[in-house]
């Protein structure tokens, strides 16, 4: 009788152990899934001739003018490569994300640098509550002045960052496409922070972008460009299968 009870206990114990093991393993798999999740890649093209970009005269800031002496810089409102690839376009999922995927905050901490009296990058993607750092690599002072829509959920701030000052760490609390950033000391400095929910990508010099870790599903993709506006298209992402989406903006 006693022995039987002992066997019974052992059976229950081993069953419990097996259950726990299975549960842990299944949890691990769930966690690991997005890493092998599909990505969306594509190219942004500009159709037509890129509008003339005005040269920037930095003579009022000799330290910055000296940096660009060999390669004078222009405004960056439309930056197109030789193949027509359009840079600085933010592509994000505007519809179709599940609640958990929508509220996931990217863990990376992108850097918004002020270098040669320009913003690097010129356009930066962010999730709400994702931290970013503002740095100053110049020998001169800047004031960093992001201007979200007045009366909206994000609020304007304006901070001085002298040369050699430590980085400014900050976040935006709500999605906003897009927040204009300017420096009042150097009125030519202009950039955009694009705050969107879920994974996003920003196009590079050749116009290619990549959105990583997109869970399988049907989505609406939106591409945003600072002067050419937005474009959308539908896309379906299958598990573990990379999807592609290309956009073409017409030059105004």
């Amino acid at each position: 009788m006693k022995k039987q009870a002992w066997y019974q206990g052992l059976a229950i114990f081993s069953a419990a152990l097996t259950l726990i093991f299975v549960f842990v393993m299944s949890q691990r798999e769930v966690k690991a899934a997005p890493a092998s999740g599909a990505g969306i890649t594509g190219t942004i093209k500009l159709e037509g001739t890129a509008p003339h970009q005005r040269p920037i005269d930095m003579s009022k800031e000799p330290a910055c003018a000296a940096v660009h002496k060999a390669n004078p810089v222009t405004t960056e409102k439309v930056v197109a490569g030789s193949g027509g690839g359009l840079k600085n376009v933010v592509v994000y999922i505007s519809e179709g994300l599940s609640g958990s995927a929508e509220n996931e905050v990217a863990s990376s901490k992108p850097i918004w640098d002020q270098k040669g009296c320009q913003y690097i990058p010129h356009v930066m993607g962010l999730n709400p509550n994702q931290h970013f750092e503002v740095t100053n690599s110049d020998p001169t002072s800047h004031n960093i002045h992001p201007m979200p829509k007045p009366g909206g959920p994000n609020h304007e701030w304006n901070k001085s960052q002298p040369s050699g000052a430590p980085p400014i760490d900050n976040t935006w609390q709500a999605p906003e496409v897009a927040i204009h950033v300017k420096c009042n000391i150097h009125p030519w400095m202009s950039g955009y922070m694009v705050v969107v929910k879920g994974p996003y990508g920003v196009s590079d010099d050749s116009g290619s972008f990549k959105i990583e870790n997109v869970p399988p599903g049907s989505y609406t993709l939106t591409a945003w460009q600072e002067t050419l506006g937005t474009q959308t298209q539908k896309i379906t992402v299958a598990a573990g299968k990379p999807a592609t989406a290309d956009f073409t903006f017409k030059a105004k």
Binding site: N143, I144, H145, N158, K159, S160, Q161, P166, I168
Partner: peptide, 9 residues
Amino acid sequence: TPMPSFSDN
């Protein structure tokens, strides 16, 4: 306004 905050630095 363009007048920034200096309290950080």
